[in-house]
């Protein structure tokens, strides 16, 4: 039986969803670990964070990984689109006149596409505000002569609406992960009746740490850093 690996059928495509999803999950851990430096005392955070940012943007390995990351995001989104279209076809033109299927499953499980689209929008805003500025614009330098991304971040997080946007986005991410993490294992067929439950709990734990970790940063900075740094 011949197969064109990428397009043949929904299990293959779903594998790609799962693999890219899990890769993004892994990235989130690293991203969070780096960002937690923002919670250090201001001066120390500034030095360390800017150093860290420079390290990331000049390391060849990190660069390669980042391309894989962009590709994963695009593939994840693209396959989601294909699958959503397919689901629409599979459901057929006639919907239910009276539909209470929502009683059966939690809302976020049924709305991964919507959550995903919101996340994509957030990622675009997020990258425009930080990544784009860092890469493609003139930026002030810190005391050690490094691009002062820390200040850009700190300034951004002094606007209440921006902090709120981030917190909401992290909630969106949280619900996406709440289903996505476990679902990825299910899709890859990595399951065992006994350990299935562990994977589920691991997913919940992971989701909580990632969501809380990312959400706490803007909140913390909003309350602790309302004076612009020199």
């Amino acid at each position: 039986m011949s197969r064109s690996l990428f397009l043949r059928d929904s299990v293959v495509r779903k594998n790609l969803m799962a693999l890219t999803g899990l890769f993004l999950c892994l990235f989130l851990v690293i991203h969070l670990a780096g960002n937690l430096q923002l919670l250090l005392p201001a001066e120390q955070a500034q030095v360390q964070y800017n150093h860290y940012s420079e390290l990331l943007s000049h390391n060849f390995f990190i660069k390669a990984v980042s391309y894989a990351l962009y590709a994963s995001i695009l593939a994840h989104a693209l396959y989601a689109l294909i699958l959503t279209r397919r689901a629409k076809q599979a459901r057929g033109p006639q919907g239910y006149a009276y539909d209470k299927r929502g009683q059966v499953t939690p809302w976020y499980v049924r709305n991964m596409g919507v959550l995903g689209a919101l996340l994509l929008a957030f990622i675009i805003i997020h990258m425009r505000d930080f990544w784009f500025q860092y890469k493609f614009t003139e930026m002030p330098l810190d005391a050690e002569g490094r691009k002062d991304l820390y200040t850009v971040v700190a300034v951004a997080y002094q606007q209440l609406w921006y902090v709120a946007l981030y917190v909401v986005a992290m909630l969106v991410l949280g619900f996406h992960l709440l289903h996505g993490f476990h679902s990825a294992f299910q899709t890859l067929g990595l399951y065992h009746s006994k350990y299935n439950r562990w994977v589920k709990w691991a997913g919940y734990g992971y989701t909580f740490i990632i969501t809380a970790g990312f959400a706490i940063i803007p909140i913390y900075m909003y309350f602790t850093q309302n004076q612009p740094l020199p």
Partner: peptide, 25 residues
């Protein structure tokens, strides 16, 4: 022409025989 599975678990709730989605995995 059936769709793909997104592991929502609705099927195992409505299944008269209560078949678990573990079998999908």
């Amino acid at each position: 022409g059936f769709g793909h599975c997104t592991n929502t678990g609705a099927c195992e709730v409505e299944c008269p025989q209560e078949i678990s989605i573990e079998h999908i995995a």
